[in-house]
Design a protein around this nucleic acid. Structure first.
Lengths: 212, 212
DNA sequence: ACTTAAAAAGGTTTTTTAACCCATTTTTGG
DNA sequence: CCAAAAATGGGTTAAAAAACCTTTTTAAGT
């Protein structure tokens, strides 16, 4: 009996193409494709549409891969989610694995490896490339956790700092005293080891706190 | 007689998948796929490997889509290049068209539209979506050209400005007086309508002068 | 060799940033 | 309810950034 697979990706071409590949594999068959998490969950209302494996993109509009996987993990724990994305950001990969993805493939993966990954997931429940395995080990040490230590208000400030506003203007915008804002700045420089606002902007962009 | 197509894309999965799609179209057949411009040009040394249409990704390592298309335009003018990319940056699209691409498809295009585009390119020599057509019209007015007016030295400065260096340090690095650097800054603020260095950094990143 | 435009550099002043240390208020957990 | 922690805000000083206007040097063309 072939295992059923669903592809979720907002790039039409890619999802159809991957679907075709899956159809070509001996042990798998494509049920359908869809554009985002919302569409997928709607499909799931009919039990006939629930596959054994979901090939999930991470960056999607409306309901992204991480959120969707989280929901699937909770409501349909038997469905195995395999992430498939161009996104190589460490923290993204970790988030995806944390919410229950059984593996993470980069989109530059070879056809044969996709097949192998599907077989592994089917038989052992998971599949991890070397790259991802290394990441997992690194994540055991804190490192990246620093970013999570940033307070809500600090994050808000950082976003404003990625603009042409002076600190005084930012203070107005956030309804705080300029001193408080300067305090945020000082502690952020300290925490993140930065010398000036430019460094903060670059940090924010690298860590997707602010998207230009 | 079917038209021959080659797919150039560094994402293995995608190139193979698109290749499969092309094989599925009535009027087209896939010759081969490759990972970047260099590989393609090596292939071209054997005339048997020269296709009628190249489906070209823009962002590739080693030799990117723009450079590759430029070379093809010069050395193999009969080969029609159709760009196929996730890159939605205006200036990138324009660059690609400027060097001779016959059309520009986003990767979220539908299978049927890819087929339509290939047929159009085969029969009329070009294919442009509405989005791209609008872009072309806008590009007639200068706008984006401002970026091209930036001098070499200014661009170099901008890159350094996207760091934690002070202007003094940048001056050292560029072997210029701090005053000159401040001059660059002042004229850039004027030209680009910016208020401070943060604005310059954001501008640089938005316009891919600096990639974080 | 002379003219001219652009690039590089200088002077000065004001504003903004940054560094450091400390006080008050608010929240939170025991 | 109280202590501790976190958030907010203040003072001061030095450094850096920004604004504006001018001069010297260099490069380019004729």
């Amino acid at each position: 009996m072939k295992h059923t697979v669903v592809v979720v990706d907002d790039h039409n071409l890619l999802s159809q193409a991957i679907g075709n590949l899956v159809e070509g594999f001996d042990d798998f068959t494509l049920l359908y494709t869809c554009k985002n998490g919302e569409e997928l969950l709607t499909k799931f209302k009919n039990p006939k549409n629930i596959p054994q494996i979901v090939l999930m993109d991470v960056n999607m509009p409306i309901l992204n891969g991480i959120e969707t996987t989280e929901i699937i993990k909770e409501k349909f724990p038997d469905v195995k989610v395999l992430a498939l994305s161009i996104e190589e950001e460490e923290s993204t990969i970790l988030k995806m694995l944390r919410v229950g993805a059984r593996g993470y493939l980069m989109k530059d993966v070879k056809q044969s490896e996709l097949n192998k990954a599907l077989i592994e997931v089917k038989e052992n429940g998971y599949y991890h490339t070397n790259t991802v395995a290394k990441l997992l080990i690194n994540s055991l040490s804190e490192k990246e956790n620093k970013k999570l230590e940033l307070k809500e208000r600090e994050l808000e400030f950082i976003k404003y700092a990625c603009s042409e506003m002076t600190y005084k203007e930012i203070a107005d915008k956030m309804c705080l005293s300029p001193r408080t804002i300067e305090g945020y700045r000082d502690t952020l420089f300290e925490k993140l080891n930065l010398r000036n606002r430019t460094g903060l902007v670059i940090y924010a962009i690298k860590n997707k706190i602010f998207v230009p």
